[in-house]
Design a protein around this nucleic acid. Structure first.
Lengths: 126, 126, 126, 126
DNA sequence: GTGGTCTAGACCACC
DNA sequence: GTGGTCTAGACCACA
C-alpha cells in the first residue's frame, strides 16, 4: 500500500503523509476506511512505530485522518476528499518537473523519458 | 545550471551532488570544465557557501571533481566519465519509479502520466 | 582514545579520521564497536560538534564507520578491517619518514633518534 | 634540501619555516649562508613563488633570515643560532610523540617502531 | 580572487 | 538520547 524509502533523504513520516494524501485524493481511500495499525505498518517497513505514529498524528491534524478510540485510524469524513483529475494532475507535477530536470541533465530526449515511463507503467500493471 | 529546492526534504548538498553526477554522466560537464565558484553558486541560490562547499568536497571525495588550489573546482579527468544512454536511463529510473508510484496512488493512467510528461518537456524545450 | 591537536596544521577532522583508520586497522576498534557520540567527543576535546560530525561522516563515506539511526555510529562490518602487521607498518611509514627528515635537518644520529623513540615509548607504557 | 608535502595538511610555508629553523639549529645553515632564491625553490617544488616568499618573510620577521638587497636571503647573524643537542632533541619531540601515538593506535610494539626507524635511517644514509 | 576550516547556535529526524 | 543539516560569520592558505 505504501512505498517508504529510508535512503531518499525525505523524512519517512513525510513520505507517508504524502502518500495518504494521494490515496485519499484519488478515492482509493474513502472516508471511513481504516488504515493499517501503527505497529503493523512499522513492522512491515522496518521503521520505528513512533515515526508512523507521527505521520498519522500530522495527517489527523491536517484533517485527513480521524482517530477512533481503541480502533485503527480511519479516513476522515470531510468535504472534497476526492479530487478531480485536474487536481490530481497538479499533485503529480512536482514529480514530473523533477523527472524532467534530471532527464535534461542526463541529456535524454522527451522520447527517451516517455518510453521509460510508459514501459515501466506497463510492467507495474502486470 | 542547477536546480536546488530547499523544501524538498532532500538535503541541498545531496541535490547538488546528484546533479553534478548527471551533468558529468551526460557529458554536459566535461573533464577540465570549471564549476561555478562556491560563493557565486551560494549567492545565486541564496544558500550558505558552506552548503555548496560541502557538496563540492564530497563530489571530490567521490572522484567526480578535482581541486585546483586557488582556482575554481573542475571536473576530474578520469575513467568513464561520460556514460552510455543505457547507463543514463538507469540513473533516471528511481525518479521514474517514484513518479509512477505517485501516479498509481493518484489513480492516474499511463496515458495521463505520459501526456503530462511530454507536455511539460515540450514547454521546457521552448 | 583520540589525540587531537588544534595547532598542528592538520585539520582536526582529518586527524580524527586517520586515528579511526589506525584503530580499525589494528583491531582496537572491531566491527560493531560503538564510537563516542559526537557531542561527547566534542566536549572532551573542546571542539565544535560539527567538526567531529564531519570526520564521522567522511569515515562513513569511506566505508569505515556505519550509521545506526538514533544510536552512536559504529565500526562497519566489512572486508579486511583488520590489517596485517606489514600493512600497519606501511601506515606508519610516512610518520617515520617525516621524523627522519627532521632528524637529519637537526643533524641528529640514528642512535639519537632511536633512543629518543624507545625512551618515549617506555614512558607511555607505564 | 627541503621536503615539502602539499598533501600533508600543514601549510607549505609553515613546513618550510620549520625546516629552516632545524637547519639553522643544527648548524647545517650557518650565519651568512645564502638560501635558494624564491623562484628556484618555487620551481623545484612546483609551488607558487608567493608561498615561498611568505615563508622567507616570516622567517625574516622571526630573526632567522636576513634580506640583502639584490641578493638571495641569507641566514641572519645572531645569538644562539646553533643549538645544543638537548635543544635539538626537544625540537624533535613533537614528531616522536606523534609517531608513538600512531604506533600505539596501530598496535605496534616499541621494537617494531625502533626497527622501522633505524632501518629507514640506514637507507637514507646510503 | 579561489576553496578550507572552524565556531556557535538553531532546528530537524529518528530511537 | 543519537546524528544531520543549515546559517552567519571569522580567519587561513594559496594563485
Amino acid at each position: 500500500m505504501f512505498t517508504l524509502n529510508a535512503q531518499s533523504g525525505v523524512p519517512i513520516y513525510r513520505q507517508l503523509i504524502e502518500q495518504i494524501r494521494r490515496l485519499v485524493a484519488s478515492g482509493q481511500l474513502k472516508p471511513g476506511d481504516e488504515l493499517p495499525s501503527v505497529r503493523e505498518l512499522a513492522l512491515a517497513h522496518a521503521v520505528n512505530p513512533m515515526t508512523i505514529s507521527k505521520a498519522y498524528s500530522l495527517a489527523e491534524a491536517e484533517g485527513l485522518l480521524a482517530r477512533q478510540r481503541g480502533k485503527p485510524m480511519c479516513v476522515a469524513e470531510q468535504e472534497h476528499n476526492k479530487e478531480s483529475k485536474a487536481e490530481r494532475l497538479k499533485r503529480l507535477r512536482p514529480l514530473v518537473t523533477q523527472l524532467i530536470n534530471a532527464a535534461q541533465q542526463l541529456n535524454l530526449s522527451t522520447q527517451d523519458v516517455v518510453s521509460a515511463v510508459s514501459h515501466e507503467m506497463e510492467q507495474e500493471n502486470d
